[in-house]
């Protein structure tokens, strides 16, 4: 088992082209080692077909930095705009309700002038009230000639 593993390392090193194995004959052709060598070769061929990962070189850095600068300079979409719109809409609603409340108070027709009450503290004095044909409310005080003057 130990010798088999050593031979496997030698096969892999020879396939990797390590200098110490250059020109040396292949290890004993045992079926297991042959199978191992075949699997290594298959793995290498498959790995050779995998496309190489792109590399960033100096030519790419300018474009890369340009993208960063544009990202910095472009204002990010702001949530405050949404709040502003919502605030304006709410304010408009409040103003509308206020206007309705303000203008809605005069729905009843305005009535004519009226004397709600009238009285005096003076003894012997009477107070009456009436509306004349011109719609003028009149409070009539009737004072005796005596006592007051």
């Amino acid at each position: 088992m130990m010798f088999s593993q050593k031979k496997m390392k030698q096969i892999a090193a020879r396939l990797d082209g390590e200098p110490q194995y250059a020109g040396r004959p292949a290890p004993t052709r045992e079926p297991a080692l042959q199978e191992y060598e075949a699997s290594l070769l298959q793995l290498r061929r498959a790995a050779a077909r995998v496309p190489r990962a792109p590399e960033i070189n100096d030519a790419h850095v300018d474009a890369f930095m340009q993208g960063i600068r544009e990202g910095i300079e472009t204002p990010a979409p702001r949530l405050s705009r949404l709040w502003t719109m919502a605030s304006v809409a709410a304010a408009a609603l409040v103003l509308l309700l206020s206007a309705l409340a303000y203008l809605g108070t005069g729905s009843e027709p305005v009535r004519a002038n009226e004397v709600e009450s009238a009285f005096t503290e003076l003894e012997g004095v009477t107070v009456n009230f009436y509306n004349n044909p011109q719609g003028v409310s009149t409070v009539q005080v009737t004072m005796p000639e005596s006592d007051l003057w």
């Binding site: 305005v110 009226e114 709600e116 003028v136 409310s137 009149t138 409070v139 004072m143």
Partner: peptide, 22 residues
């Protein structure tokens, strides 16, 4: 002393008068 105290309800442009104060 109060010769008269009256509460008036005046419409827009309404007028009222108190008469008889000797």
């Amino acid at each position: 002393r109060k010769a008269v105290e009256t509460t008036l309800l005046l419409g827009p442009r309404g007028t009222a008068r108190v008469c008889g104060l000797r």
